[in-house]
Computed example of a mutant assay.
Amino acid sequence: MTGQGQIGQAKFGVVTDGGLDAYAELKNSVPIAPFSVNFGSVSRRTHEISREDLLRELASNPEHPTSSQPTPQDWADAYRAAGTPEVLAVTISAGLSGSRNAAEQATQVMDGAKVTIHDSRTLSAAQAFQVHAAVTAAERGESLQTALEWMKAVEQETELYFTIETLEYLRRGGRIGRVQATLGGLLNLKPVITVDKASGTYTNLARVRSYRSAIEAIATQITARYGEGTPLRLGLLYGSEQADADALLKAVQARHPVVWAGVAGVNPVLNIHTGPRTVGIAAAPGAWPWER
Rank of each mutant, 00 (worst) to 15 (best):
K27N: 14
A181Q: 12
A147H: 00
F39M: 00
E216Y: 13
R233V: 10
A224N: 09
S199W: 06
V269F: 12
L167Y: 11
V135I: 05
G280M: 10
D17S: 09
S120E: 06
D21G: 06
W288P: 03
M1A: 14
V37A: 06
T84A: 11
Q69V: 02
A153W: 00
V195N: 13
V115R: 09
V15E: 05
Y226D: 02
A106M: 02
L55G: 02
P276G: 04
V252N: 02
R255V: 10
L248C: 09
T274Q: 09
G141A: 03
G275L: 08
D74S: 02
A245N: 06
G173V: 09
G8I: 09
D53H: 09
L123T: 12
V135H: 04
G5R: 03
F39Y: 05
E104A: 12
Q242M: 11
Q145V: 13
G18I: 06
T116V: 14
G286L: 04
A153K: 04
L249R: 15
R277A: 01
G3K: 11
T116L: 06
M1L: 13
I7H: 10
K27D: 14
Q127L: 14
S93V: 03
V258C: 10
S210G: 12
T220N: 10
E216N: 15
A153Q: 10
Y79I: 00
K197Q: 14
P268T: 06
P231W: 01
R140Y: 04
I215P: 05
F35P: 02
E86N: 10
I222N: 05
A247M: 09
E25Q: 14
H132I: 01
R255N: 14
V42P: 01
I193K: 11
T182C: 11
R56V: 11
P65F: 04
D244V: 03
Q4D: 12
A283W: 01
D119S: 02
A219H: 03
T2I: 11
G235M: 07
T220Y: 09
K114W: 04
V263Y: 15
A153S: 07
A126N: 05
A126P: 05
K114N: 11
L187P: 07
A217R: 15
R207P: 08
T71R: 02
V279Y: 12
I222M: 10
T116C: 07
V263S: 12
L234N: 03
A287D: 13
A206M: 02
G5H: 03
A94P: 00
W290L: 02
V258H: 12
G173Y: 09
L187T: 14
E57A: 12
T16G: 00
G5Y: 00
